[in-house]
Design a protein around this nucleic acid. Sequence first.
DNA 1: TCAACTGTTCTGTTTGATATAGAACAGTTA
DNA 2: TAACTGTTCTATATCAAACAGAACAGTTGA
Lengths: 152, 152
Amino acid sequence: MLFQVDAHAAEPIFEQIVFQVKGGVAQGELAAGDRLPSVRDLARRLSVNPNTVIKAYDTLHREGVIVRRQGAGCFVSDAPSGLADAERARQLDQLVERTVTEAFHLGFGAGEIREAVDRHVKSVRFPGKNPGKNPHKNPGKNKNANKKRSSA
Amino acid sequence: MLFQVDAHAAEPIFEQIVFQVKGGVAQGELAAGDRLPSVRDLARRLSVNPNTVIKAYDTLHREGVIVRRQGAGCFVSDAPSGLADAERARQLDQLVERTVTEAFHLGFGAGEIREAVDRHVKSVRFPGKNPGKNPHKNPGKNKNANKKRSSA
DNA sequence: TCAACTGTTCTGTTTGATATAGAACAGTTA
DNA sequence: TAACTGTTCTATATCAAACAGAACAGTTGA
């Protein structure tokens, strides 16, 4: 998986990393058990301080997206959210309210908003759905994802 | 309209104000031409520095949500976004990608995401749609919104 | 006209988050 | 055991957010 960050963007670097990992998992580019680049490796590749990568991985770990094994590396988790249902519902509501409100002020109508959501929902690899029809993840490409030290 | 902010929230105070105004407009609680509270009044009510309110109003003005008339006040604008179509599309895409990805990691499926979007889309007062069926905005409540100095 | 409101624009200061640099310690793997 | 992993410190620089206070300028209505 290819990482890239923009040091001049409004979004903090560590959050850019967090979202790229989340996006990779959602798109099926990263699967449960896959190993992330090591802290030092990713920091070198992005020309960024290792502490910044650590902060990103901390966030991903806190949200249950990855698990960390000292000495071994960080791996994509397969466990679900872990939050209480009420909290999950609250967060979804807040996310969607935000997006719909902003879309409204961008001048989009109900139909256009629903279309955009549909488009993105279809690109996501939900668990137990559409096995093997995702454009990413060349079959066999990840055969040694847990063996080698690092991958793209 | 009722404003409230949380000084301890992760979101900056000025952004909370911005979103509440945007939400008010989207929900039909604020209509084009309505006057916002004055900078000093809102600052006093929220126990917040006037400069913070100014920053919020600056943002709303920059995004075309309000217009400002020195000595008179700030008013809800009726002009559309003003951004180029390509930029509007780009921003919508980014918003929706973000929300769908986060919803995925919260453990929600395609159906639940679409439902949440539907629910919020229906609560929004799109221009030229559903005249007068919105639960907010008691008819006649705003009869002097442009005459009095300040309102809730 | 004038008082009382409005927005606008300064100059500061404090605080916290972001990101950097560098070092050291601890577990894993081949 | 060597070379990698994650982990945990300290310290520093920079910037955004929010605060405090003052002053200037336009609008409104009595």
